[in-house]
Simulated scan of single mutants.
Amino acid sequence: MTITYRSVKGSNLTAAEVDDNFHDVDDRITELEDNPPEPTNISNITVVGTQMTIYLEDATVFGPFTLPQAHFRPSVVATVGTATFTPGLSDANCYKLCSNAGGCEVTLSDDADVAWLPDTEMTFDADNAAGLVSFVGGSTDVTVEPPTGFLAQTAVQGAVVTAKRIGANRWRLIGLLLEDVTA
């Protein structure tokens, strides 16, 4: 049965023609419900770096799509054996084991000197056999912010402190810091 179109016929449809049209559409829907078509399945998925491509059995290709990824925090442990240390971009998101027996002064550079990324972190460990680690800004524009009542210095040997960039030329210190007893 075929559908009768009013525009093709050139006049109004009769009641029988309208019923035939509905019957034809109902038959087609019933056929699809009883015998659904086979889907085209995925044959392969490839991922190269952060790019994913989906291949179907009929050779259709979707992608590449960029996959979301977590912010990578490398667990690189490096030793700093000097009395002073000025970290650079390669030190971002790293763990520094400060081993100088006399301690280590960490200078956090001005954003004009180092293109720090937002949310940069650097962790410093006052190694058990070493002196304490202190933190200073590389210029008057750099603010090093320990919590209220604490100094910008590790409290004891073995203490761990993270310097987190929280804004332009702003570094917040998080960890076991020396209490400010003069306040």
Score class of each variant (00 low, 15 high):
Thr2Val: 06
Thr4Gly: 08
Thr4Trp: 01
Ser7Gly: 14
Ser11Phe: 06
Asn12Ser: 14
Leu13Gln: 01
Leu13Thr: 04
Ala15Thr: 14
Glu17Arg: 13
Glu17Ser: 07
Asp19His: 12
Asn21Asp: 08
Phe22Tyr: 01
Asp24Tyr: 08
Val25Phe: 04
Asp26Ala: 11
Glu38Asp: 05
Pro39Tyr: 01
Asn41Gly: 14
Ile45Phe: 04
Val47Leu: 02
Val47His: 02
Gln51Pro: 14
Met52Lys: 07
Tyr55Gly: 08
Glu57His: 09
Asp58Trp: 00
Ala59Cys: 13
Thr60Val: 11
Val61Gly: 12
Phe62His: 08
Phe62Trp: 05
Phe62Gly: 03
Gly63Ala: 09
Pro64Thr: 05
Phe65Ile: 11
Leu67Ser: 12
Leu67Asn: 12
Leu67Ile: 13
Gln69Ile: 07
Phe72His: 15
Thr82Val: 10
Ala83Ser: 10
Thr84Asn: 09
Pro87Gly: 08
Leu89Met: 12
Leu89Arg: 14
Ala92Leu: 05
Asn93Met: 08
Asn93Val: 01
Lys96Glu: 00
Ser99Phe: 01
Ser99Gly: 07
Asn100Lys: 15
Ala101Asp: 02
Ala101Tyr: 01
Cys104Thr: 05
Val106Gln: 00
Val106His: 00
Thr107Tyr: 03
Leu108Phe: 03
Leu108Pro: 05
Asp110His: 00
Ala112Gly: 10
Ala112Thr: 08
Asp113Phe: 06
Ala115Thr: 14
Ala115Arg: 12
Trp116Gly: 14
Trp116His: 15
Trp116Val: 14
Leu117Met: 12
Leu117Gly: 13
Asp119Tyr: 12
Asp119Asn: 15
Asp119Lys: 15
Thr120Arg: 15
Thr120Tyr: 08
Glu121Ala: 15
Met122Glu: 12
Thr123Leu: 08
Phe124Leu: 08
Asp127Asn: 10
Asp127Phe: 13
Asn128Lys: 14
Thr143Pro: 00
Pro146Arg: 09
Thr148Met: 00
Gly149Trp: 02
Gly149Phe: 07
Gln153Arg: 11
Thr154Arg: 08
Ala155Gln: 07
Val156Cys: 05
Val156Met: 03
Val156Tyr: 00
Gln157Asp: 03
Gly158Pro: 04
Ala163Leu: 02
Lys164Ala: 10
Lys164Met: 07
Arg165Asp: 00
Arg165Phe: 02
Ile166Ala: 11
Ala168Asp: 00
Arg172Trp: 05
Leu173Gly: 07
Leu176Glu: 03
Leu177Glu: 00
Leu178Cys: 11
Glu179Phe: 07
Asp180Gln: 06
